[in-house]
Design a protein around this nucleic acid. Structure first.
Lengths: 145, 145
DNA sequence: ATTGCAAATGATAATCATTATCATTATTAT
DNA sequence: ATAATAATGATAATGATTATCATTTGCAAT
């Protein structure tokens, strides 16, 4: 099993792109962060190690990380794209609390199967999907009472 | 069964807001349009009837229409919010073609039930959800070959 | 090593949908 | 009528992301 670093480097080689300190730092920082993260949050962390690093580079490298298959985009609908691990972190959907914003990754193989069937019933070949379940977590429900 | 117009007017009254020609025109235009529509598209149509109408008003009225329960927002992830009917047009999810952009409203009661169960298994009370199924429609698949 | 070329970076401007502001106009209640 | 309040339209502001571009860096071939 290849490491994320190897996969990224292979991707760079395949695309005739270069391995640079900035790319290394941004990838490492992303990998260390287990929860999903926005470009700005990542920039804030990375800046501490290399204050000269520009935020445009964070956006650019994040895109490369996605293309290399190491991250996937999460759009929670608040105008800020977030990125989460996509390697050794199998596909899952999101349960989001409307109270405190807490998000939990969830997976239901039956739902996944039914999605495929629904798509096929309309002649579609399903490639991917997004599912966001919104509600109130236990804590927030208690707090409301 | 109340008409959409009545529901909107009742909402305005309840909120101490006024019935205006602009609000009437924008609501009518939205109601006539069966497919989902963006603020800009709606503005383009409405402008033909009343060229003096400003696009800020379209955004404002669209928000009122949503609040009145007559429309719901559809976020297809391309940075443009779209609005679709929410009265006599029961909840459905979306099947979107990655080739031509065609979207189809779909509904599967089993999926809906499973979503509720997944949420509950994490202590969440589900309020709503979004599900977008992406793939390639029959036409686009044929074209690719 | 040195030169030349392609890619990468950082700073900053541009983009684009949406929201806020604010002066003007319209509507309602008194 | 008239004061009070809301609505409108024009325009500026916002904020995340992308494009631009001058400068820097890394690599290849001589």
């Amino acid at each position: 099993m290849k490491s994320e670093k190897e996969i990224f480097d292979n991707y760079l080689i395949k695309k005739n792109l270069r391995e640079t300190p900035q790319r290394g730092l941004i990838l490492d920082t992303f990998l260390k962060h287990e929860e999903h993260i926005s470009a700005e949050q990542l920039y804030d962390i990375v800046k501490k190690r290399d204050p000269s690093l520009g935020q445009a580079t964070v956006y650019r490298v994040l895109k490369l990380i996605v293309e290399a298959g190491l991250a996937r985009e999460v759009d929670l609908g608040d105008g800020v794209m977030r990125y989460e691990h996509n390697y050794n972190h199998p596909h899952h959907d999101h349960l989001v609390c409307r109270g405190c914003g807490k998000t939990i990754g969830v997976f239901d193989s039956v739902i996944e199967e039914l999605q495929k069937r629904v798509a096929e019933s309309y002649g579609f070949e399903l490639t991917d999907h997004e599912m966001y379940l919104y509600g109130f977590c236990e804590n927030c429900r208690k707090r409301k009472q």
